[in-house]
Design a protein around this nucleic acid. Structure first.
Lengths: 342, 342
DNA sequence: CTCCTTTTTGGGAGCGCTCCCAACCATATG
DNA sequence: CATATGGTTGGGAGCGCTCCCAAAAAGGAG
């Protein structure tokens, strides 16, 4: 097995210098005749530039990292992260970069992996997501000079680049929609309050309710994003006889729907449900979920684009906020249900 | 902002040479006194070695790639890939390496990303998931000298390292179980026949059936892994009045269960269901699915370990096959259902 | 035909590390 | 006291590329 060849070798075969070959590869100025000859040699030999050498010399790796702390075994049970990764991956491909994935749990190993993320010469920048409120990871990142953008809204957003969806406005819309439908005893299945998405959706919903002169009183239970937690939360809530529930995630809403059905009640007949995410396929539930749709894939793509500007040197923090959109389907009762099932 | 410091700088501050610092960092032989001094300087300055420089000099990057071809927008709808990634990521962390993720669709862009995967100096090796039969990607990889292992069973497995689960045996077990329960009219909701997992599960099931003197006759419909396809397949199958169905994936089984319920029939009362994967949480469905459990996470972890041996120079192809295990729950009817719901 | 501009090309320097060999030092041995 | 032994240490060479400057070639204008 012969040695991999390098720029010099290719140049020798084409009768030009290292530099000229480099120019051909990277699109510099080369006479068309020379270019033709060099390209022929490259095609013939299958030459490919060495990524590490390039990174070292140019001080840029062409790799971006995606960091997801507290990635438990259940990470992908919620379609959210898969969708986000898909968006990030596709945008990464588009800008001709490579994606590195850093998942870590809450163990003590976490620290060492964090430090791997900021290893010089490994990635050009990172996207950080799934952080909890006051997550030390954000502070840690700020202490380095590694370019990074946050997906979500960190507490101290002021000084960081971030892209998020308008959780608060979306939840408010849900409240207004439910109020408009005439509910009297609204309830809330909230997302964990140690996440900004959780608090934003909660406060947005309460705010919308207040505008309509309504209140959840004590009809509020906090879930943990899981379907099972949504089911249990709804079970608990049923004792309070709510006539409308806003569930802070689709996945929890699927569980809530099941609890309603198993209690012998009907959605939307007895209880209207509106959820947040718009991520589970409508057909998957009966009735179809009315949901506040957040553009997850776009968020991922935008995060990559934003990161490239940070890598390129942008320094004044930019906050991108995507609007959400209410998709009215069956579970809220605004539309006649196709086939109300027992 | 001052320049990042390098080995030489650290050495100067500690009064030793570049080489000595390198030895301290990499665990070579250094006197304890010197070591202490150097480590102090490293801690104080926060020095971290430059990954690209290291890769270039040592000809090893510490990065492994995960390649998932034909990754459509629905990739993560099935928990399988998420789970696989989790296993791979955790094993990658354990061996102190970094994971690069290459997802690509079936577009013409695919080609260029494949070539990025084999860029020298980018990754030390890759794990390729074999989805479709006769995937040209496998052949392409064989043409390079990039170490790789396949997750799944490629057609031409002979010459590649791969790790897979025993789909055939697992499906056979399902058939035997159903037969043992006394079914007379078994049916099959198969996985796509352009995947080896699909054909293995199909043939294993038919084989088991044959052993028990049974046959699906024409009670066989092929799904596309999606929940919706499982539902449609079952709908179609109902006309044939099957009394037992083996569904080639949990996700399709969830759809099948719904079709049964919506047709006013009862599972397991009217129809027994056994699925493959064991990946959806039992509580998620009613009745709980009896399923052939495949150890997805372990497969991922094993793939990483195997890849490290290939990178280290292993050259005689190794095929690791994990056994599956039948988890008997409610949907097959072997156990009294907790609460048979309409 | 000379001088100046523009395009094209070559090669030195250097990125930060590892690898390896030679030099060094101390201690143990004949 | 010379010599072997083994643990430490320093520094040259080189990984394959980019960056940059200067040399060479090719035109254009006077």
């Amino acid at each position: 097995m012969e040695r991999r060849l390098n720029l010099e070798d290719v140049g020798r075969r084409a009768g030009v210098s290292r530099s000229t070959v480099s120019r051909v590869v990277n699109g510099g100025h080369v006479s068309s005749e020379t270019k033709r000859r060099v390209e022929a040699v490259i095609a013939e030999t299958g030459y490919r530039p060495h990524a590490a050498a390039r990174s070292l010399a140019s001080n840029s790796t062409g790799v971006i990292g995606l960091v997801i702390p507290s990635a438990a075994g259940t990470l992908f049970d919620d379609p959210y992260f898969g969708r986000l990764i898909l968006g990030i991956s596709s945008a990464t491909n588009e800008v001709d970069m490579t994606l590195a994935l850093f998942l870590f749990g809450d163990g003590p190993d976490e620290r060492s992996i964090i430090s791997r993320v900021v290893t010089p010469g490994l990635v050009d920048g990172v996207i950080v997501t799934a952080t909890t409120r006051g997550d030390p990871l954000i502070d840690h990142m700020q202490g380095t000079n590694m370019p990074f953008v946050v997906v979500g809204r960190p507490d101290n957003a002021g000084s960081t680049f971030c892209v998020d969806v308008d959780n608060r406005a979306g939840a408010r819309t849900a409240a207004l929609h439910l109020a408009g439908l005439g509910c009297r005893r609204p309830a809330l299945i909230a997302a964990p309050s140690n996440t900004t998405a959780g608090v934003d959706r909660r406060s947005g919903f309460l705010e919308g309710l207040a505008e309509a002169g309504l209140s959840v009183e004590d009809r509020i239970v906090e879930g943990d994003w899981s379907q099972e937690s949504g089911r249990r939360a709804m079970d608990r809530l049923l004792a309070e006889r709510p006539d409308a529930v806003f569930v802070a995630s689709d996945r929890m809403a699927v569980g809530a729907l099941r609890a309603i059905r198993e209690a012998g009640l009907n959605c939307p007949g007895d209880i209207s449900v509106v959820s947040f995410d718009g991520i589970v396929p409508p057909d998957l539930t009966a009735p179809q979920l009315t949901s506040v749709v957040q553009p997850v894939t776009e968020v991922g793509e935008r995060a990559v684009r934003l990161l490239t500007t940070v890598i390129a040197g942008a320094s004044t923090p930019e906050h991108v906020v995507f609007p959400t959109e209410l998709a009215v389907r069956e579970s809220c009762g605004a539309t006649p249900t196709a086939e109300p099932e027992a």
